[in-house]
Design a protein around this nucleic acid. Structure first.
Lengths: 175, 175
DNA sequence: AGCTATCTATAAGT
DNA sequence: ACTTATAGATAGCT
């Protein structure tokens, strides 16, 4: 947003309006020692990482699973179409490779496939669901999500901003 | 690097040296249709995602696992201290929570919800829930909502816009 | 694969 | 949590 930026476009010239010391600075890529800063960074970067993941999926039609463990052992995860699905795929693929290694010795396999529309392995999960039923669940969940938001607000005694609600951390779930 | 930048710092003034049309442009967050461009983006962004993951670990002393599946099914992964380790932790944590639920809810039998007016886990009365549990459920719901978005997309044979995905609709209970 | 101009993420400060 | 300025990521070219 140019309006919120501190620089104003003036033809080919940009004028820096606030030359004061605030703003991003380069940091060393080592553990942030200050406790509060580390927490803030963890939260921001985790959110950013998940967002990047979403973007990758949407732009490139990929699937992902991102799992983050805090030093305390808290689990945050995010995945499309689902963490579990991608993780399972990853593991079965791993097993497969292990088996191939045992057998294949001198033979080299080269395969450059062109990607195109086929059936995705994870589509099985929804095959049985009717679109209508799916939509109905969505609607109900949407409603409940709002209720939950209100409850959270009350319990925490403050307003949650909408973007936080709609936004992104997924601590992991129960099921 | 300021030297490779097209802008030169001149006191409080920055002069844009090359106003030509090259350089980054904003793109819509939907599938990149041009095949070559999508591949390039996939490669660049995957690399970027992994880097962000590494940084998160280093800065905040966290552990991560990132798994990316190309539409063709190729598997890319990256994790610290190891993908497998983090994935295992994730899965055991998941199992644990599932078991806890079974115990604390004395007679809550919940197979694959499929019948009309069944009560889903996310519909339980939320008044008595602890804040943390509430947050966890919200997060879970968030994830499911996104999953449903993708499922709907596939079923309807079209792309939803990102604001729909991040915004406020589409949910999908997988499994 | 390398470049450049921008767009975006985010460290600091409040 | 909100703001501000900069560091870093990356779209479009070549």
């Amino acid at each position: 947003m140019p309006s919120s930026s501190a620089e104003q476009e003036l033809g080919q010239i940009r004028v820096k309006k606030k030359p004061n010391g605030t703003g991003r600075k380069k940091i060393e890529m080592k553990k942030i020692e200050k406790n509060s800063s580390r927490k803030v960074a963890f939260s921001k970067r985790r959110k950013g990482l998940f967002k990047k993941g979403i973007e990758l999926c949407r732009l490139c039609d990929a699937m992902i699973a991102i799992i983050v463990l805090s030093p305390k052992g808290r689990v945050y995860s995010n995945g499309y179409p689902s963490v579990e699905g991608v993780v399972n795929k990853f593991q079965s693929e791993e097993d497969e490779e292990r088996q191939l290694e045992e057998v294949e010795e001198g033979g080299e396999e080269e395969e450059e496939e062109e990607e195109e529309e086929e059936e995705y392995w994870w589509e099985e999960d929804i095959e049985g669901l009717e679109l209508e039923e799916l939509e109905r669940r969505r609607a109900r969940m949407e409603e409940l999500r709002c209720n939950m938001a209100l409850s959270l607000e009350e319990m925490m005694g403050r307003r949650l901003r909408e973007r936080d609600l709609l936004g992104s951390e997924r601590v992991f779930p129960s099921r």
